[in-house]
Amino acid sequence: MSDSTSTQQDCGSTLGFLVLRAWLGIRALVTGIEKFSDVRTVQQPLLDEAGKPDPSGAVVEIQQKFYSFHSYRAIPDALRDKFAQEPLLPSFLTSPFYAALGWALILLGITLLLGLWTRISLAVMGAIYVALTVGLILIKQDAGVAWLAIHIALIAYALQLSKHNRFALTRS
């Protein structure tokens, strides 16, 4: 193999890992932030295109998305209720997991995007998805399990490519 071919392969792997790291970082960051979102219904006058109130005086209800610490939900309520019925998921384990999940994803997203402790971040992210997989297996959400498996595969591949980690704040 010539030097130039090897350099091109290294460059490709570096860029490939960069893209993968960015994707996983964004995936974790935005998913974490979304756990602090909610939708509220607000009422406002029905306005025409010029901004004038409708002659009927109508008031419309509009769904408005917002973010707040108060809105934090680690997982949807329906899923949480199902997990609560599982004997293998005792609350002393799930409660701290729920409390940390959103913050952990945000933190992991930031570390991956910045390239801070990349391998550790990837490994922790993988562990979180494995933990979620346990719950989904127990409640027989096969589609969800498959969905998480794709993430796990990407994380595993990223760990394999991590020796090509560049544009990172730390080398570890």
Partner: peptide, 10 residues
């Protein structure tokens, strides 16, 4: 009723 007015007029 504004609900009916919007339904009819708009």
């Amino acid at each position: 009723n504004p609900r009916y007015l919007v339904a009819r007029d708009r």
